[in-house]
């Protein structure tokens, strides 16, 4: 099939081919979630590298450099992360609001490669309000795996998006603050303090064997950081070493912090 076209026109039209701009392929792969962009944001624990793609935020990492971040990211996800100047404006706003304690603005997360158990643990951690903490055992009980306390700890250590999923609000079952994947325990204390919790006070309560607070007027017992517990005046505050002791004293568990499962397995 040939056309009636003179060679000059044919050559001129063929000469209008144009290579795609550099970066188009990468942006396309980011849009479908087969590559990622990352940028640096500020936080109470210093600069953080945040990676994202069209499916959601894929990683948050602390003190490191671009090359190390990229190498680790590639090893974990198999994808290439490219440094860009800034987060997309709407994502930056959402993360800022999330770090300020707003749990109700939705941030899409790309958690491919994780197990259903890990995701259940992380989604449960998202329910812990700013300024409050829960022990590993509480998460285990809440997701219906009361004996999987150690596995909960491991899953939280693998949280790829710390701060956005607030694994820093989950503490050891003995009440001590415990480890933190984003730069160690000091960062965990810094963030909790920033959020209005008092790590030193929590640990001294734990050392004294106190796990729950009760109110002798309502006969309800709570996790010590529960917003309901903090409303109880000194005069009416009762300490309990276990949920069994609280139940034996005729107290029922708070409906907000649901403390019953927290001490199921130490």
């Amino acid at each position: 099939m040939t056309d009636l076209i003179d060679p000059t026109t044919e050559a001129a039209l063929a000469g209008l081919r144009e290579p795609a701009p550099p970066g188009l392929a990468h942006r396309t792969l980011v849009a479908v979630g087969l590559a990622d962009d990352f940028a640096v944001i500020d936080s109470p624990v210093g600069p953080l590298r945040v990676a994202w793609n069209g499916r959601g935020v894929s990683e948050v990492a602390g003190a490191t450099d671009d090359a190390t971040f990229q190498a680790r990211f590639h090893a974990r996800t198999g994808r290439v992360a490219r440094r860009v100047d800034a987060l997309p404006a709407d994502l930056a706003r959402k993360i800022e609001r999330r770090l300020a304690g707003d749990r109700h603005n939705r941030i899409d997360l790309d958690l491919r490669g994780s197990t259903a158990f890990e995701q259940a643990v992380w989604m449960k951690a998202l329910e812990i309000p700013r300024g409050e903490v829960r022990p590993y055992g509480w998460i285990a009980a809440e997701i219906g795996r009361p004996k999987a306390v150690r596995a909960v700890g491991t899953a939280l250590g693998h949280n790829p998006v710390p701060l956005i999923v607030p694994c820093h609000r989950v503490v050891r079952s003995d009440g001590m603050i415990g480890q933190y994947s984003l730069g160690g325990p000091e960062n965990k204390r810094t963030i909790l303090t920033e959020e209005g919790a008092d790590p030193d006070e929590l640990e001294s309560l734990a050392r004294a064997g106190v796990r729950f607070f009760g109110s002798d007027t309502t006969h309800i017992y709570c996790m010590p950081t529960c917003r309901d517990a903090r409303r109880v005046t000194e005069r009416h505050l009762v300490h309990f070493p276990s949920s069994r002791a609280a139940a034996a004293a005729g107290y029922r568990p708070c409906l907000h912090c649901r403390p019953a499962g927290a001490s199921a397995v130490a």
Partner: peptide, 13 residues
């Protein structure tokens, strides 16, 4: 999929 993008991006553009 990346190979599909690389193979066809110039002509689509």
């Amino acid at each position: 999929f990346e190979d599909l993008v690389l193979a066809h991006q110039d002509r689509l553009f």
